[in-house]
Simulated assay, not measured.
Amino acid sequence: MTTEVTDIGVGTIRTGLLGGGFMARVHTAAARAAGADLVGVATSTAAGGAAAARDLGYRRAGSDAAALLADGDIDVVHVCTPNTTHAGLARAALLAGVHVVCEKPLATSVDDARALVVLAQERGLVGAVPFVYRYHPMIREARARVAQGEIGAVLTVDAAYLQDWMLLPSDDDWRADGDAGGPSRAFADIGSHLFDLIEFVSGQRVTRVSARTRRVYDRRGDDRVVRNEDIAAVMFDLASGAVGTALISQMAAGRKNALTLELHGARRSVRFEQERPEELWIGDRISSQLLLRDPATASADAARIQRVPAGHPMGYQDAFDAFVIDAYAAIRGGAPEGLPTFADGLRAAVLTDAVLASAAADSWIEVPA
């Protein structure tokens, strides 16, 4: 049976939610900022669904994702459930004729991610993945300057994404369990964000990787068996021949969400730090400058996603809001610049697979284009 896709046009987007944790709150705040009608939420238990509906402002709740998708009164569903459930829930939504915003990883295997890309295309539905760091205006500014040749040919990349929330053996989370989190944790969870930015800002694909991974503790918390990595160190090449290094760790004491990206060009360098999102460092041989966010002087793409004047700080939730606004614009038929789609979720799965394969083989691995 073929499910008809509703023509939304300029109408209000009717939103459903799967999951009730921290990311569900972030997604809901962004959907509300985009003017959505918060229709329904489903979690793994009826009590959890009722609590999420009450706390987040959805009109109804339940514990049955299939029922939420089958009711026919939602246009888009946000999937914010454990990693290994993403692919199945996204597929069910697409088959029901519902657009999907799916937390990363889109899928824990390349084959599942590729199947979702194909299905979304066949159904004419929008599938978006929140690689939201693309929506920091100074990332867009860096991307524009690289594309315009301002820094010259990219020579090297220095990147890192460091956190400390899994530093102690008592630190535990469902993501450490392979059955819920999947075969990769540090890279799939945060390294995927970092490599999405590397390719997005440089405008180039990573062509090969040489990776080392480390699992520091085999057991965490109340004797949970850990099946994925805490740390990944990756050397990589870009298509132009530029070389790069990236360190990803969820065990870097004192680092809360330290995503940094520095590109060194033949003329200048640019550096972005996610914990200082209002700034872009630009260095050259004679002098360096710290460029502050200002829509009046920004590139067109960076100015487009700035919602407040210079001097009024924008942060993570603002970036997430801008992503969801773009995703909903795509649902209405638009084509927003830089919207991360299921194709980008597939790319993250391909890179994750290459990193794990490289670490297992202790060798360089070519990354499929």
Score class of each variant (00 low, 15 high):
residue 72 G to D: 09
residue 133 Y to L: 07
residue 103 E to L: 06
residue 130 P to K: 01
residue 98 V to E: 02
residue 189 D to N: 11
residue 159 A to M: 11
residue 77 V to L: 01
residue 144 A to M: 14
residue 133 Y to I: 06
residue 110 V to E: 03
residue 111 D to G: 00
residue 77 V to S: 00
residue 90 A to K: 09
residue 143 R to I: 12
residue 110 V to H: 04
residue 109 S to M: 10
residue 161 Y to G: 02
residue 93 A to R: 02
residue 152 G to D: 10
residue 135 Y to G: 09
residue 108 T to P: 03
residue 188 A to F: 10
residue 135 Y to W: 08
residue 140 R to Q: 15
residue 143 R to V: 13
residue 121 Q to P: 00
residue 149 G to E: 10
residue 97 G to Y: 05
residue 93 A to I: 05
residue 73 D to M: 10
residue 190 I to E: 04
residue 171 D to Y: 09
residue 148 Q to S: 14
residue 109 S to I: 08
residue 84 T to L: 05
residue 160 A to G: 10
residue 167 L to M: 07
residue 165 W to N: 14
residue 124 G to D: 02
residue 109 S to G: 10
residue 114 R to P: 00
residue 134 R to Q: 13
residue 78 H to Q: 03
residue 164 D to E: 14
residue 132 V to S: 11
residue 109 S to L: 06
residue 75 D to S: 06
residue 122 E to L: 15
residue 79 V to C: 02
residue 180 A to Y: 11
residue 84 T to N: 06
residue 112 D to E: 09
residue 137 P to F: 00
residue 79 V to S: 01
residue 167 L to Q: 12
residue 152 G to M: 07
residue 148 Q to W: 04
residue 125 L to W: 01
residue 146 V to D: 11
residue 187 F to V: 02
residue 102 C to M: 06
residue 145 R to Q: 15
residue 159 A to L: 11
residue 137 P to Y: 03
residue 160 A to V: 11
residue 184 S to T: 04
residue 101 V to P: 01
residue 129 V to I: 08
residue 114 R to Q: 04
residue 111 D to N: 07
residue 162 L to G: 09
residue 140 R to A: 15
residue 146 V to E: 13
residue 144 A to D: 15
residue 82 P to V: 00
residue 190 I to K: 07
residue 146 V to F: 08
residue 192 S to P: 06
residue 103 E to A: 06
residue 119 L to H: 12
residue 107 A to S: 11
residue 192 S to R: 03
residue 176 A to E: 07
residue 79 V to E: 00
residue 116 L to W: 05
residue 176 A to T: 12
residue 159 A to F: 01
residue 181 G to H: 03
residue 189 D to K: 00
residue 163 Q to R: 15
residue 105 P to V: 00
residue 130 P to I: 02
residue 136 H to M: 08
residue 180 A to T: 12
residue 81 T to N: 02
residue 176 A to Q: 13
residue 150 E to V: 10
residue 121 Q to M: 05
residue 187 F to D: 01
residue 95 L to M: 15
residue 107 A to Y: 01
